[in-house]
Amino acid sequence: MSGYLIIYVFVVLAAVAAAGFMAVRKGENQVVIRTSIILVISACYLMWAITYLAQLHPLIKPRRSDLKPSHVGPESDYLY
């Protein structure tokens, strides 16, 4: 996976937001629901994109001193 995932997700979510915007029926709460949909999607996307982007090219790598050789192996990859 690469940095383009951020753009793909953006496109998908923009489509979802647009669809949500259209789908809200007219009524007293139309404005509240539309605003909420767009804000929820943009806030959550923003946070996800930041965390994803920050780990795309990590400048530091996890380091630990409490590792035992028995812990490490193909199957215990799951643990750490």
């Binding site: 996890p62 380091r63 001193s65 590792l67 035992k68 050789p69 490490v72």
Partner: peptide
């Protein structure tokens, strides 16, 4: 990240 398999116990290991 993947942890290296060959290291001495007690040393700092980098993934």
């Amino acid at each position: 990240f993947r942890w290296p398999t060959d290291f001495e116990k007690g040393t700092v290991v980098e993934a």
